[in-house]
Design a protein around this nucleic acid. Structure first.
Length: 974
RNA sequence: GCUCAGAUGGUGGAACUGGUAGACACGCAGGACUUAAAAUCCUGUUCCCGUAAACGGAGUGCGGGUUCGAUUCCCGCUCUGAGUACCA
């Protein structure tokens, strides 16, 4: 029989499901290997051809590892809480659980069709109570923990309480809110219960506090920083504003240093690590306190100093002004009556500017003088205090010491407001701009004059410490993560309130199930949708927390759940976690760099601190698959007609139009269209790709055409006419009898008609072809447009492979003869090649190598059973269905292929006794000579020089030099 | 602006530690089979010069360098994509 991919694929997909072929063992003598794909969100649109790219790669890897004798864990599940289902629910009134269920069913059907070797017995869904029970449980552990900086790990809050009871706050070195109380043990004990709870909240790793959040009114929720792009929500593109709210937060900053250090120990793409490093944003410097000059109007000010953070404390003698953010809390009290007008005007002006403008406009210098001064702690010089919006309230202390000679922004500021610029380095050149050099020796700098950068920095810090005016400090850009959404479709927070203070519900009351509501909208009083639930109170009395957890909660620990997915006693058993440890290979997109991948590492470290998991890093090796872009096709319609012109005619018309403009008239077409009239004085509008004449009339329109009715950029005219009613009577102006479409690479989206659905590909060519073609497209990590054009080649390859096992009448027929030398050579070449390729995730090159091997075996007319059986095993990770079928036809038991042994490479089959040496002159290859590989370089040289053709090239002269690299090349210099 | 990644035929791409640039595939052209088409198979296909072949020349974004030899290493530049954005 010819290659019947439909029957074969259905048969084996059913077989794998019924026999649970890919069920992973929880204890095994085999070494473990954990291959994970990033958790998909089951969107309503289903999978397009770009989504499975990473899944196919990881599936090939997982299947390959099984053949190599590993116990492979390769699970799949759904990150099924999220905004789109909820938006849909708001529009339609349908419960998000129902749409989510339907979407998951679509995903599952599509995934099954591609033939993945997932262990579906471990499927998880973040939105099912059996799963989010443990998300809530982890939240409770975070609430019950604090970060002990001395031990550099999270510890139970009871330990902190015990310390307070014995020693008070003395000796506690914790990551906490800024304003914590100092108290003795007795004072602690004297506090009321509520006061104690309020104090403890300042230490808990998940805590409640008023913070500035990214509030998106259109979505009615708070967004994480990585969900906001240029002041708009990433999903939907709605405006986002800053708002103060009581919010659950996570003290991820406690882990900043460990998150940074951990990056050096994991095998991730360098750009991804770099993104995390930038996000964490560590800078080493010093904090310095500048005493406020109280000689004038500030005498009764409660605070004595302004603290700044600087990375160049050595430049402190170059400070000629201090700049604080307009939002800084001291602005009002520092402003003198004379300056009040200027300051108020400036603040009003900055407030008007949106966050976006403020970021975009980095050129204009603006600011205002408060009228107050601080004193330089090292020489008591008066330094004026200014406010300016280039200082950000959210970073460091919201205040900077400005050194105009060394910092360009400070330099511009000083120039603009005519403030002094003091050079501090002997080699500093500050004629036209600031010079931040660290080379040279200090001048104008008191006791550090003549020192080098290193000496000066140490000396200044020592002096500041001695004076109690400053100390070395490390600052991080990363902020604590907001952990709450004012939305319905998420995990309820297992917290209730009593007297305004949060308390955890009993662990035995988990899961706290999402209550039913009448509408998925905020309440009339502006409370989150959970406020609509009737009779929803803890123990019937206490109010629950009404916000739900953010999207990243459920995905920050899910890889542990796969280890023991059906455990209802623990989030995962200790034995399972100890066996599977961590993810060996994680494949997914780089868009999760600063979200999911950072939060997951954070939770993992926390879970390790409390002793329930054992690895410091969860994802040992990570690969980013590139994005699959869309490839759009266009047709060109002459406006007000049903005529469409082919691409190159369209291009000629453009040229024609420009020639007419230049006064030249050429005859391009003999047609009834009056091109002269049409193209006289036309104007091309880049933005919407239309052509207008001087009246503004549309002349030619670029229209997206469904890529599924275009093959190799040639339009299927019959299908086009049927595609939409308005095209039924279309006429076409062809070139060479064809209608050629224009092409552009864009995002894959419905509105651009460039979405290619895997279902259609599978229908036409089968899953094995889809799998191999996705890999064949190019390197996994590179982004590329999807172009179905080359898929025939892969399909033909599989047919050719199938034919190796069959005779001319399509009857199964293999020979049991001894394999020939040539056959063994082809086989062992591919054995090694595929091993090497998979090891470096170069799947595209192994597809090419399979083609070469099958071409070779076809040329050899090989039907050798031993050779073909090994070929089946090697190919099976890539094209599992066809291989399963051939495996059984070869007489093996069904289902055993997945656990067969990968053939062993034997280099002796590749040993050659001759090599066709390229003979080059001055590095340019001229000819090839077959020379025995047993010859030594000197013998090769003699052999080559004795050759008549070589002598012809040398023109009788002796070469100046001969380079012989054995087994590689002969090069002669003349 | 800064950081990172990349640039190779008509197209996707290959060339792993410096050693025959363009593997493999698509497309295209020509041919075989067919009444015809589809399917299949065969041949050719980097560019330029040359009627063609042999042959010759150029060639991996651009300009230099190191080397017997550079797509690969070094320096400078251009362009494209991604991330980030006054971070003190």
């Amino acid at each position: 029989m010819d290659y019947q991919f439909k029957d074969i694929e259905q048969k084996w997909q059913l077989f794998w499901a019924e026999n649970q072929t890919f069920k992973a063992e929880d204890n095994s003598t085999k070494p473990k290997y954990y291959v994970l794909d990033m958790f998909p969100y089951p969107s309503g649109a289903g999978l397009h051809v770009g989504h499975p790219l990473g899944y196919i790669a990881s599936d090939i890897f997982a299947r390959y590892k099984r053949l190599k004798g590993f116990n492979v864990l390769h699970p799949m599940g759904y990150d099924s809480f999220g905004l789109p289902a909820e938006q849909y629910a708001i529009q339609t009134g349908q419960h998000p659980a129902l749409t989510t269920e339907a979407n998951i069913a679509t995903y599952r059907r599509q995934l099954d069709q591609i033939g993945f070797s997932f262990d579906w017995s471990r499927e998880v869904r973040t939105s099912s109570p059996g799963y989010y029970k443990w998300t809530q449980w982890i939240f409770m552990q975070l609430f019950n923990s604090w970060y002990n900086k001395t031990a550099d790990k999270a510890e139970g809050i009871d330990k902190l309480i015990a310390h307070f009871e014995q020693n008070g706050s003395a000796g506690i070195n914790a990551v906490s809110d800024e304003e914590v109380l100092s108290f003795s043990a007795d004072e602690w004990k004297a506090l009321s219960h509520d006061e104690q709870q309020a104090e403890l909240l300042k230490y808990r790793i998940t805590y409640l506090r008023e913070s500035t959040v990214n509030w998106c009114p259109a979505l009615g929720t708070v967004l994480a920083n990585d969900e906001v792009k240029d002041g708009f929500s990433e999903r939907g593109g709605y405006p986002v504003e800053q708002k103060k709210m009581m919010q659950w937060s996570m003290r991820i900053t406690a882990y900043a240093q460990r998150l940074l250090e951990g990056l050096d120990k994991i095998d991730w793409p360098e750009p991804l690590k770099e993104m995390q490093r930038n996000w964490i944003g560590k800078s080493v410097g010093a904090s310095v306190r500048f005493p406020i000059d109280k000689s004038a109007h500030n005498a009764q000010l409660a605070i004595d100093y302004i603290e700044v953070f600087t990375t160049r404390v050595d430049t402190i003698f170059g400070v000629t002004l201090l700049v604080i953010a307009p939002e800084h809390e001291l602005v009002a009290s520092l402003t003198t009556p004379e300056q009040k007008g200027a300051i108020d005007a400036y603040i009003a002006q900055t407030k008007k500017k949106s966050e976006l403008d403020r970021m975009a406009d980095t050129k204009t210098v603006s600011g205002a003088f408060t009228g107050s001064y601080v004193l330089n702690p090292l020489n008591n010089e008066k330094v004026p205090i200014w406010i300016a919006d280039y200082v950000l309230a959210g970073y460091g202390t919201g205040a900077v010491m400005a050194v105009p000679s060394g910092d360009q922004r400070d330099y511009l500021f000083a120039k603009h407001f005519d403030l002094p610029i003091v050079p501090i380095m002997d080699i500093q050149n500050i004629e036209i701009e600031a010079d931040p050099t660290k080379d040279g020796l200090y001048i104008n700098s008191d006791f550090i004059n003549g020192l080098t950068y290193k000496e000066a920095t140490a000396a200044v810090i020592a002096k500041l410490e001695e004076l109690g005016a400053g100390k070395a400090k490390v600052n991080f850009r990363m902020r604590d993560a907001i952990f709450g959404r004012q939305r319905y479709w998420g995990e309820p927070v297992p917290v209730y309130f009593k007297d305004g203070l949060p308390y955890l519900i009993d662990e035995s009351d988990l899961p706290l199930v999402l209550p039913e509501v009448d509408k998925y909208l905020p309440t009339e009083s502006g409370e989150p949708p959970l406020g609509r639930a009737t009779d929803w109170k803890y123990k019937g009395i206490s109010e629950y927390e009404l916000s739900t957890m953010p999207g990243w909660a459920g995905s920050s620990w899910y890889w542990y759940r796969y280890m023991d997915a059906n455990n209802d006693k623990e989030f995962a058993s200790e034995a399972a976690v100890k066996y599977w440890k961590d993810v060996d290979l994680y494949i997914g997109g780089s868009e999760h760099a600063t979200g999911h991948l950072l939060y997951s590492r954070f939770w993992n470290k926390f879970l390790k601190d409390i002793g329930v998991v054992f690895e410091e890093e969860p994802f040992k090796k990570l690969i980013n698959q590139g994005m699959i872009q869309g490839r759009s096709n266009f047709v060109y319609r002459l406006v007000k007609t049903d005529k469409f012109v082919s691409k190159n005619i369209f291009k000629n018309l453009l040229e024609y139009a420009s020639l007419i403009k230049k006064g030249q008239v050429i005859q391009l077409f003999e047609d009834d269209i009056n091109y002269d009239k049409l193209y006289n004085d036309n104007v091309y509008n880049e933005d919407d790709k239309t052509y207008f004449n001087y009246n503004g009339e549309l002349l030619i329109q670029n229209l997206h055409v469904d890529v599924n009715i275009v093959t190799n950029d040639i339009l299927d005219i019959q299908k086009f006419k049927k595609w939409r009613p308005e095209f039924t009577n279309s006429e076409f102006i062809l070139e060479d009898g064809k209608y050629i479409c224009g092409v552009e690479v864009e995002k894959m989206s419905k509105s651009k008609f460039n979405v290619v659905n895997p279902d259609d590909i599978i229908e036409r060519y089968g899953a094995d072809t889809l799998r191999m073609y996705e890999m064949f497209l190019g390197p996994l990590e590179q982004s590329k447009p999807w172009n179905t054009n080359g898929i025939e080649g892969v399909f033909k390859f599989l047919r050719k492979f199938w034919r190796l096992f069959h005779n001319d009448q399509w009857q199964f027929s293999v020979s049991g003869a001894e394999p020939s030398k040539a056959e063994l050579k082809s086989l062992h070449k591919i054995i090694r090649k595929v091993e090497e390729d998979i090891d470096r995730f170069s799947f595209n090159t192994s597809v090419s190598s399979f083609m070469i091997a099958v071409n070779e075996l076809t040329d050899l007319k090989s039907s050798n059973k031993a050779i073909l059986q090994d070929m089946v095993v090697i190919l099976s990770p890539y094209a599992p269905h066809i291989c399963e079928e051939l495996w059984t036809l070869l007489g093996n038991a069904a289902g055993t292929l997945s656990y067969a042994a990968y053939p062993k490479f034997n280099p002796s089959y590749l040993v050659e006794d001759e090599f066709a040496y390229p003979i080059s002159i001055n590095g340019k290859t001229k000819m090839n000579l077959n020379i025995s590989l047993s010859l030594a370089p000197a013998e090769i040289e003699a052999f080559v020089l004795a050759n008549a053709d070589v002598q012809k090239y040398l023109d009788g002269k002796a070469p100046k030099k001969v380079i012989v690299v054995k087994g590689r090349i002969v090069n002669m210099v003349v």
